[in-house]
Every structure is written in structure tokens, then in C-alpha cells.
Write a protein that binds this DNA or RNA. Structure first.
Lengths: 343, 343
DNA sequence: GGGCCGGTTGTGAGCGTTCACAGGACGCCG
DNA sequence: CGGCGTCCTGTGAACGCTCACAACCGGCCC
């Protein structure tokens, strides 16, 4: 090794440079870096000083190569501009950082199995140690279940019927609670503005609603469905406003509830005077709708955090039989839901 | 090298395994993988077949080690659960993917210089080739400007006065347009509900508003300020509702406008009958507020995309003198802004 | 006083890829 | 028929780190 004289252009310092400056071997530098025991304090100090002086930074690729650990986790998410997914991503990132991992994201363009496969492959090629899938669609989940090769995968926000570890919200019970609340307020029955077909949330919330009605002996009116957007809620709201018998509506999410509120407003149906409305999610804006929206709160950040913890456990893990975490959402009452008016 | 016999437990195949199976050298496999010229078609096919058969995947750490390129870009963002930042992140990710990069995120917990430094360091330690900072606060930008060591950094959504390459929105002109529109509708003057101090957006929008008033010879009323949230908009709205002379309000963002609308509604001040309101951002829900909100649209996804393109150019780049891209936002008229009523 | 043990440090061999270069096969020209 | 260029392929040495192991230094026990 004749590279004694430093090159003319300064290159990034490597471990050997630090070692030479500190008068120790590269291995000792490595030990200091990794907090290994049995390094004399004086030696450690000299090494640390050399590191600071050279502004040395370990090369993560080299470390990853030999340890076979990239310290990176992947997240695949779908509509990441929405409040829910964005919050989960945020929660995941924070939890990952405190667990000592980096986070790499891959957003899906569509939900077919191929697209999920592609995203997962991309992340695997990058060398992630595990993957969190933020994709609450039935198709995505089943696609993921097929993919689960070599790298641990955890799902979040999705339904309960997947074959992979998952953190889920008890959408059914949330929907039941909301519906029962409306029934308790004296409404004969409750209409439902559902989410799009193919989403587990839609399905579960609709089931919860239906179940609550049945338990109370109320008949379930036909379901309107939207695509989660305020626009679709508005359009469905225009149809609902035409139905004279409606006195209460449970919406599958807050955005659609916003659209619904406006449609009702424009039709001159007062909320909660004539019609009560309850949403789902408790987005930060819900409290400032006109009128303030009663809704079912889910803590997306917490969801993300728990998912990451689950993944980390899985990584460290003595594989338990498909762990699951289920979080129960909480009803938040505001002015949009009130007693049924007397007939 | 006595490792002729394969170990009992199957390990990940490496390039040498592919080479052996295809009857070529590892270098030829590398050539096929990297699309190098001068590989006989027959040979290439054999190699590809071997790759498929073994389900071989190149080890990215090894590649990164020798090429000194991680194929990864970093994003540091602040309130990434908000619509704007989330959309930018989404745009960035999409653009990065199509440019052949992975994206690693680091969200800030606070905005002090130390926190930014820490996030950037984290990403650098991971070996990112470049960083996009989605942090429109003056403090963040100045912190970033100090940090810019060794790795190219690009800012997005922030103001124009930074010393680093940036993609910005022309907030001034957007604010001017909105304000002028209200004046043109016959309002004597326009009140302003500003964003928090320390944000470039706040500052620029306020300047644009002030400038438009001045140009029209209108006097600028005292400014109310919020923190971007609907709650703060609501609180400011309650104060504004008490001022009898108000006929038009320009809000620094849509969320605060939502709060304002509700405060006005509760105070019995009709919009746009008595008071006209214009927001900023055009979040997807704005069209479904009561009444539908006139606002200044910015395309966050586009912003992110452009930022990433800028960063990639920078990477490939013959360093031009601090390039900048400025995007002009567009006024979207809806029902919340109307003519001043006659006195 | 020799042997053993534990703390501390150094040496060398990989990890799986790309890069630089060497070398063989083949065709064509003079 | 020698030489040269082009196409194709292989060999060995990095890249910067960690891991396994050896070696050294004291002190302590028998």
C-alpha cells in the first residue's frame, strides 16, 4: 500500500485516517464508534478528538455491506396527501428515528397488485430491513400479503382480515358508537354516506352502522357512497337533501361530511335542527365546520407509531403468530348532532 | 477460497452465483446489469436467465460503497401532516422515483437551527446525495444556508431571500391579486388575517396585500395574525366580527379562512353579503366551505416536483450561480367574495 | 516462578460490487 | 502472413467497514 502521501485534493476522511491521527488501529476507532467495551478512557478520548478534528463520518454503505443491516425501513403509502396517511407517515418517521432507523418512502400511483409489488420491490432493492404499508384498501392488503417475501411487512390502518401483522382501528365499533348516539338522540333511523367500495374502512364502518341499527330495531335505509372527497360528499348530499324523511346521517369520513353539510345548507335543511350529522376521523378542521362536526376521532399519528413499533419488534423478533394491535376510536360530540325534532 | 460447497441454509444469491450459473465471470454479470455495451446477445440472455432463476438482486450497499453514490435523496420537512407539505413531499417522491432516486425523509420537531442541523446531519450520515428542504420559515432557511456543507441542498416553498437554490411561489403577487380583486369589487379597503411571524409566506403575503392597498390609495387597517390553524382563524374572526367597518378580508391561508367563516357566521355577518373573504392555497376542501371559498391556488405537487428537478440538475451539474424557480399562483373565484354593498 | 485470566489493542480476512486493465478471438489490411 | 483494431470476456484490486482471532500486558493464584 503505497498511498502514504495524501492526494492533492482533499477527500473524505476514512477510519484509517482517524486511526493514524489518534495513533491507534482502525479497529480501535471502530470500537469507539460502536461503543464497544474494553477501550481505555484515554484512548477513547484521543480517538474522539481525532474524529472531531477531521470531521469524520462513518460510511454507511460500507457498514451496511458488512453488517447486512441498512438501518432503513420502508413505507409504502397511497394517497399520502390526505390528512390520515400524512399523519401516519409522520408518526412512523418519528418512531423510526427514535428506534434508530431511517425511513424511505414509496408512494403508490395505483392500487393494483402490480403497483404494490413494484413499490415493495423498489424498497427491497434499496435494502430496507422492513416495510410498513399504509394502504387501507382491500386490494392493496391482499397484494401485500402475496408479496411478503424475505422482508418483514406490517400493515397499518387496514382491516383485520389480512394475513400479515397489522395495526388497525376498530372502525366497526366507532361506527356503531356514532350510530347509536344518533339513535339515542331520538332519531328513528340513521342514513349512511359510505366510503368507496374496496376500502376496508368503508366496509367496516358500514357494517358497524348496520349493526347498530339492527340492534336498535331500526330499518337501514339505502346507502349512498362517495370517494372520501368533499366533492363526492356534496353530490351525495344533494341526493340526500331531497329525501324528506332523513333526520340523521352518519358519514364515513369528515371530508364527505363537509360536502354534505354544504349541500344541506344550500337546500335549506338546517343542521342539527332538521338533520343531525356525524363524521369520522376528526380532522383538525372538523371543529370549525358550520356547524362544528361531531365525529369519531382516530389518532393517526399514534397509529403510525404503533405500526413502527410492531415492525421493530418483528425485526428483533422471535416470530409470534401474526400479532395485531387494534385501537378503539372515540366519539367526539359537537354541535352537528342534536335531538330529533318532534313529529 | 475454499467455499465451493454451498452452505446448508440458503443465503441470498450474489453476483458470483449468477456468474457461475451462467458460465461467465462476475464482471460480465455486472455488465449486463448496468447495460454496458459489448456483451454478446446470447451471453446476455444466459445471464438474465440465471438472474431470474436465482431471483438475484444486486446488493445496493456494495454498489453504493464502490460507486460512492447512494441513489438516495433526503427530504427534511416541518409540519408534514399539513396539506401543503404533504403534497410537496408527494411531488418530490414521484419526481425522485422517475429520476431514479430513493427518498428518505426526516421531519423536524422544532424549527431552531440545531434541529435543522440535526436533520441534515442525519440524512448526510445516511449518505444521501442531495437534500430538499421543505421548510418555509425564515429561521429554517437561514439555518439551512449555514449547513450547506458537502451535499447540495435545495429549498422549496420558501422565500426568495435565501442564499441557496430554491423553488418558490410568488406569494406577493398572489396576495396582490387577491387584494386587488376585492378592491375592484368596490371594497373601500381590505383587512388581512396574516400567518405567524417568522414564516416567509406570512411576510410576503402581507407585503403583497399592503402593496395592493397602497397602489389603490386605500389605507391599511391593523393586521390580525394567526398560526395557520382553523382555530386561530376562528379566534381572529371573532375579533374581526366586532369591527363594524369590515367589508373584506384576505386570509393568509384557507384553514384560517375556514375558522374566520365560522366566526362570521356565528356573529350573524353574512359572507359574501356583508363581508367578502379570500383565502390562500386552494386546499381541496375550500370549494366546499360555506360559502365556497375564493382563494389563491398554488400547486404544491408541482412545487415539489420542480424542487426535485432542480436538485437533480444541481447534482449532475455544472454549478450555475444559485438557480431559482418562481411559480406564480392563480386566483380562483368562488362565492365567498362579492361586491361591496352600497352604503 | 510458571500458568492463567481478563482487560486492551492490533492484524487480516472478508462483505458484494465496480473499475482498470489485460487478454483472447476474429476480421481485415498491407 | 504479420499486425492492428474491434468486440467480447476475465482477473485482480479497490471501496470502507466489521468480525474473528491473535497477541500483549499485568496481576493473581498455586
Amino acid at each position: 500500500m503505497g498511498t502514504e502521501t495524501a492526494g492533492p485534493e482533499t477527500r473524505q476522511p476514512v477510519m484509517a485516517d482517524v486511526a493514524k491521527l489518534a495513533g491507534v488501529s482502525h479497529q480501535t476507532v471502530s470500537r469507539v464508534l460502536n461503543g464497544a467495551p474494553h477501550v481505555r478512557p484515554g484512548t477513547r478520548d484521543r480517538v474522539l478528538a481525532a474524529i472531531r478534528e477531521l470531521d469524520y463520518r462513518p460510511n454507511s454503505a460500507a457498514r451496511a455491506l458488512v453488517t447486512r443491516r441498512s438501518q432503513t425501513l420502508g413505507v409504502v403509502s397511497f394517497e399520502s396527501t390526505l390528512y390520515g396517511p400524512a399523519s401516519m407517515l409522520d408518526g412512523i418517521e418519528r418512531a423510526a428515528r427514535s428506534a434508530g432507523y431511517f425511513v424511505s418512502v414509496a408512494s403508490l400511483r395505483s392500487l393494483d397488485s402490480r403497483s404494490v409489488q413494484e413499490a415493495v420491490d423498489r424498497l427491497r432493492d434499496q435494502g430496507v430491513e422492513g416495510i410498513v404499508v399504509v394502504a387501507p384498501q382491500t386490494s392493496a392488503v391482499s397484494a401485500v400479503a402475496k408479496v411478503t417475501s424475505s422482508v418483514p411487512v406490517v400493515a397499518v390502518g387496514s382491516g383485520t382480515r389480512s394475513s400479515i401483522p397489522a395495526v388497525t382501528v376498530d372502525n366497526r365499533s366507532g361506527a356503531e358508537t356514532a350510530t347509536r348516539q344518533l339513535l339515542d338522540l331520538g332519531h328513528r333511523t340513521v342514513h349512511h354516506l359510505a366510503g368507496p367500495v374496496g376500502w376496508l374502512e368503508s366496509q367496516d364502518r358500514q357494517e358497524g352502522w348496520r349493526h347498530a341499527l339492527k340492534a336498535a330495531g331500526a330499518t337501514a335505509p339505502p346507502v349512498e357512497a362517495g370517494d372520501w372527497s368533499a366533492r363526492s360528499g356534496y353530490e351525495a348530499g344533494q341526493r340526500i337533501a331531497r329525501l324528506t324523511e332523513v333526520t340523521a346521517v352518519f358519514c364515513a369520513n369528515d371530508h364527505m361530511a363537509l360536502g354534505l353539510l354544504r349541500a344541506l345548507h344550500e337546500s335549506g335543511r338546517s343542521v342539527p335542527g332538521e338533520i343531525s350529522v356525524i363524521g369520522f376521523d376528526d380532522i383538525p378542521e372538523a371543529a370549525y365546520f358550520i356547524p362544528p362536526l361531531s365525529t369519531v376521532r382516530q389518532d393517526f399519528g399514534e397509529l403510525g407509531r404503533r405500526a413502527l413499533e410492531l415492525l421493530v419488534a418483528e425485526l428483533g423478533g422471535t416470530g409470534h403468530p401474526i400479532p395485531r394491535i387494534r385501537i378503539t376510536p372515540e366519539l367526539v360530540l359537537r354541535r352537528s348532532a342534536g335531538p330529533a325534532r318532534r313529529t
